[in-house]
Amino acid sequence: MERIPILRIGTLLLVTIQVDLYDDLALRLQDDLSNRIAELEATGVLIDISGLEIVDSFIGRTLANIAAIARVLDAETVVVGMQPAVAITLVELGMSLPGIRTALNVDLGMEYLRQAATGENGVGTDHYAE
């Protein structure tokens, strides 16, 4: 069965999505991530979607679910590398994914997760403006 690999770096989990994401594969990723967060007591999850050509409502919902599940399991999630065309389309579609933290690239995403783990803040972008 096809699976998206999950990398562990310290207490962080790193996922790079490079294949065309079909629904079951996305759901499997959600399952796997939930298990790994609990098993490894991870403090953060980074999902790199720079390789995704589209994010439709299903994929968007899965990302939101992963972030929500991770939060319940006491881990932060950050989604990085969304392409401009994908972002414009998602907004037009009506999905602004308010519960998801985002960062421009893997480096900034990792920096955010490390700071979040030590209680600092300031790198990722969150929606709750001021």
Binding site: M82, P84, I88, V91, S96, L104, T125
Partner: peptide, 10 residues
């Protein structure tokens, strides 16, 4: 929309 899209990109 522009502001929201920028946020989605980080």
């Amino acid at each position: 929309k522009t502001i929201t899209a920028a946020r989605l990109m980080g």
